[in-house]
Computed example of a mutant assay.
Amino acid sequence: MPCPEAPTSAPPPPDASPDAAPGRPAWQRLWPIGLILAVLALAYALGLHRLLSFEALAAHRASLGGFVAAQPLAAALAYLAAYVAVVAFSLPGGAVMTLAGGFLFGPWLGAGLAVAGATIGACLLFLAARHALAEVLERRAGPLLGRVREELRRGGFWYLLSLRLLPVVPFWLVNLAPALAGMALSPYAAATFLGIIPATVVYAGIGAGLGQVFEAGGRPDLSVVFSPGILLPLLGLAALSLLGAWWRRRQQPG
């Protein structure tokens, strides 16, 4: 008596590949971006973006200064959290936040808090963008994106550092592009932290002198960061950073 043949598995659909893994549902990927857009819409609807202005800082300077004097630790933590939120949700007003840090906490502590808040916020935005879009981009990556990913793997820290050093490059754009191109988090965080220090120190120093500006009823001159005495050294540092990327690439085989 012949043995019955073992059942065979159904053939895969024509468009399936043995190595293909099902992607996550869209809502699981896109919810961080949806949250950012929802917070942005809510902030504009409630007019919260108007609080991130020089006029608002001038109007509330007495109450803010009193809060810092009465509860310095709580004020510093609140400022840090606010800066993280501004950067993570891409709200306009990073320059005003840095000025406020210098005005409220002095140039050095204000700069330190601003650098920490901007770095943490940028890393959160980086992770949100990577969570939402990196999987799709990796599946559809062509030769060009593949080369970009390889360049970032080899010298991404130096490339990003050069961009961070230049205040002319939009901060939000430099936050998102490395995540979409496949850069790792650790060099991204390190380059962000180091690269934003020079311009942040300049802005915090301007903020430390806002008392006299408020008394005179004027506005701070933020164009000083583009003056030759400040911009040329930043350009030099950016060039050295690119030189570091070139040297690292030359030292690596292949």
Rank of each mutant, 00 (worst) to 15 (best):
V96P: 02
L91C: 02
L152M: 14
A184E: 15
R140C: 06
L160N: 13
L37Y: 03
R61W: 00
A74T: 15
G121D: 03
A239S: 10
P92D: 07
R149L: 09
P220D: 07
G218R: 14
S53K: 01
L104I: 05
Y83T: 06
A239T: 12
P170G: 07
F103M: 14
I196V: 15
Q212L: 09
R50A: 13
H60Y: 08
A62M: 11
A75C: 12
G47Y: 02
E135W: 02
W158H: 10
V87S: 05
R164N: 11
F54G: 05
L166I: 15
S223F: 10
A208D: 04
A82E: 04
A245Q: 08
L52C: 07
R61T: 01
A75T: 13
F171T: 07
S90W: 00
G23M: 07
P13H: 00
G182T: 07
R164Y: 11
L35N: 08
L64E: 01
E135R: 05
F54P: 02
H60M: 05
L176D: 01
E151P: 01
H60W: 07
L231P: 06
I33G: 01
S223Y: 02
A118L: 10
G182S: 12
W247V: 06
L99C: 07
L124P: 08
S186V: 14
A10K: 11
L166G: 07
P12M: 13
I230D: 00
L73D: 03
V168M: 12
R147C: 12
L234Y: 09
W247N: 04
G93V: 01
G229Y: 09
A43F: 14
S63M: 10
A100Y: 09
R50V: 03
L235V: 13
Y203M: 14
L80W: 13
A20G: 05
G229F: 09
L234K: 07
V96M: 05
M183F: 05
L73Q: 12
L77H: 00
E55K: 14
Y79Q: 02
P92C: 02
L91Y: 00
A85P: 03
I120S: 02
N175T: 03
A134I: 06
G146S: 10
A69G: 10
G23C: 08
V202M: 03
L40Y: 03
G93D: 10
G195T: 06
R219G: 10
L73F: 14
V39K: 01
L52F: 09
F89V: 10
G93A: 08
Q28N: 02
A216D: 15
A191P: 00
G254F: 03
P167T: 08
R250M: 01
W31E: 08
L91G: 04
A59F: 00
P143T: 00
P220Q: 02
V84G: 11
L176A: 13
D19G: 15
A82I: 06
W172V: 13
R248W: 01
A58I: 00
